[in-house]
Amino acid sequence: MSAGQGLFVSLEGIDGSGKSTQAKLLADALKRDGHEVVLTREPGGSPGAEEIRALVLQGDPDRWSAETEILLFTAARRDHMERLILPALEAGKIVVCDRFADSTRVYQGLSRGDLRRLVDQLHDLMIGREPDLTVLIDMEPDAGLARAKGRQGAEERFEDFGLSLQERMRAGYLDMAQAAPDRFRVIDGGRDIETVAGDVHAAVAAAIP
């Protein structure tokens, strides 16, 4: 897959890190700057991918094996890329995506089994693109989980795995950020929302051609 002159930005973080809030604030700030912005999320972002989202984020924690989840997430991501992300990038827009492939690498590839190689193989075969910039909202696992559980929404399947999963995920994210410093920007998510938003906006603004 190839894209035009747009900018592809993903926001990542453990559950409760505030990345969804920050993605919305970032999109709003970039629009105020005069940019055309598409705000989207994963899993989801296109009609077919949203249907898969309901399958993987709801229900019993043991509903799917990690291998099955990888296939489902990759299918959702392929549809999302084809129908939304690539057309927006080719039109020169900024795409702000709440989660992308790094979530699959951490959740299924590292935290639920030693399946990172499988995740990367499927990604290379079916997706073939990384974000231009990934903003990692870093958060202490216990604080993030408490915030996530406080939402009391329907999509709590991964939160139900508990603190140990959140700890493994945080470590996985930080390892990826260290391995790809040109793509990642790590932002301390333990501060007030406005301060975090300012740092996120500054990091992305600096990456805009």
Score class of each variant (00 low, 15 high):
132 D>W: 15
124 D>M: 03
128 G>L: 08
123 H>M: 05
58 Q>T: 14
99 R>C: 15
105 R>K: 15
92 G>K: 06
144 G>D: 01
133 L>R: 11
68 T>R: 11
67 E>V: 10
119 V>D: 09
150 G>E: 15
146 A>Q: 13
114 D>M: 03
57 L>A: 10
137 I>N: 08
142 D>P: 01
58 Q>S: 12
60 D>V: 10
71 L>C: 13
130 E>K: 14
61 P>A: 09
66 A>L: 01
97 C>F: 07
105 R>W: 11
85 I>P: 05
91 A>H: 08
124 D>R: 15
146 A>D: 06
101 A>Q: 09
64 W>P: 02
103 S>H: 04
61 P>E: 01
58 Q>K: 04
76 A>L: 09
88 A>Y: 06
123 H>A: 14
150 G>R: 10
106 V>M: 13
77 R>M: 10
70 I>G: 11
142 D>C: 00
130 E>F: 10
144 G>R: 00
150 G>M: 06
56 V>H: 05
75 A>Q: 14
82 E>K: 09
125 L>T: 09
118 L>W: 08
116 R>H: 06
86 L>R: 14
111 S>T: 12
103 S>V: 03
83 R>T: 07
135 V>R: 00
134 T>G: 06
87 P>H: 13
98 D>N: 13
129 R>V: 15
81 M>C: 11
62 D>P: 10
70 I>R: 15
121 Q>C: 12
126 M>V: 04
141 P>V: 00
129 R>I: 14
61 P>S: 00
102 D>A: 07
65 S>R: 07
106 V>K: 00
143 A>V: 05
115 L>K: 03
115 L>F: 11
96 V>K: 04
143 A>T: 06
73 F>A: 08
140 E>L: 05
133 L>W: 15
113 G>H: 00
141 P>S: 06
129 R>L: 12
114 D>G: 08
91 A>K: 10
149 K>H: 13
128 G>P: 02
107 Y>A: 10
61 P>G: 05
143 A>E: 09
80 H>R: 08
104 T>I: 13
125 L>I: 01
80 H>E: 15
135 V>A: 05
89 L>E: 05
64 W>A: 05
79 D>Y: 04
77 R>K: 14
123 H>F: 11
131 P>C: 12
85 I>M: 06
70 I>M: 08
91 A>E: 15
135 V>L: 04
145 L>H: 00
